[in-house]
Simulated scan of single mutants.
Amino acid sequence: MIRRLLSRIANRSETDFTDPEAPAFTHAATPAGVRLIAVGDIHGHLDLAHDLMARLEDEHATASGPTHLIFLGDYVDRGPASAQVIDWLAGFAPGWATPHFLRGNHEQCLIDILSGAAPDDMLATWLDYGGRETLSSYGLGSRVLYSGDLEEIRAAIRQAIPPHHRRFLEATLPCLRFGDYLFAHAGIRPGVPVETQSEEDLFWIREPFLSSSDDFGAVVVHGHTITPVPENRHNRIGIDTGVYRHGVLTAVVLEGTSRRFVAAQASGVEAGQPAHQVGG
């Protein structure tokens, strides 16, 4: 299984599965009077996360009932401020919404490393796919991060990451459902009931989920797979617009049967236009 997980870390192709002729999923609805907001993969970009929260809070004035704010995971890796993002989220208690924190594949990798469950090849791969940026945000220097001594690196990770950050990571949820919407980091496996989905699929899946036209029993709101613009399908909504690659962090606001997208963009980035690639 570890080998499969490692191959999925490396499979970072930027594919646009958007079908412009896909019909609107007009009958999916939130619970009566409830607004749901899902936030895509933050990947260590605290500045854009703050910007997006400010935009969403400004919109809250039009909400007539409770708002639930669902973060879809991948808070860490690749960006410059993973430690600061975790510190912010661990204490995040906005007066205008109830926050919920899902787990992404990048959090799962870090949890496995902290618990000792990750073998050496998984640790080495994680370092190359955003882990070094995360550890740098926790204050670890190049001498340790590029030493090649995995035992030294493991010990440094355990010492650098504070207990309340680890508790936050371990408390993240695999998925969450409200009304006709299911929230999961990566998606679900078609043909498998929602209640029996594996965590591996919830955190890692791409195909056959992305190309499936099945009715999943709920509209799946997910991140994980980068597309230049949000995907609004009849059976799923994808909102990972590649903050570390395109400079755009996206949220979807669901209220009744309506859907709309809100984005925070790095300076010089226009909505729907990929920025220069900033990460590998």
Rank of each mutant, 00 (worst) to 15 (best):
Y244Q: 00
E200L: 13
L102S: 05
E151P: 01
I111Y: 05
G40D: 06
A266V: 00
L56A: 03
R177D: 02
G148I: 04
H43I: 06
S82C: 04
L36G: 01
L110I: 13
G268C: 05
I157H: 01
L69K: 06
A38T: 07
H276A: 13
W88N: 02
A32C: 01
V248Y: 01
S147Q: 06
D128M: 11
L210E: 12
A29T: 11
S211H: 08
P274E: 11
A117K: 11
R189T: 15
A124T: 09
E170P: 00
L176G: 04
G191Q: 10
E151C: 07
L123D: 06
T98Q: 11
L176P: 05
S7K: 13
G238I: 06
D180C: 02
Q265M: 13
T227G: 11
L102F: 03
A171I: 02
R177Q: 15
L173F: 04
A184T: 09
L176M: 12
V278R: 08
R236S: 11
A22W: 10
G191V: 08
M1G: 10
I188T: 13
A186P: 09
R206W: 05
E152Y: 00
G179K: 06
T30N: 03
I205S: 02
T196N: 05
L52Q: 12
I70F: 13
H68Y: 11
I9V: 14
D47Q: 13
F178H: 14
I113K: 03
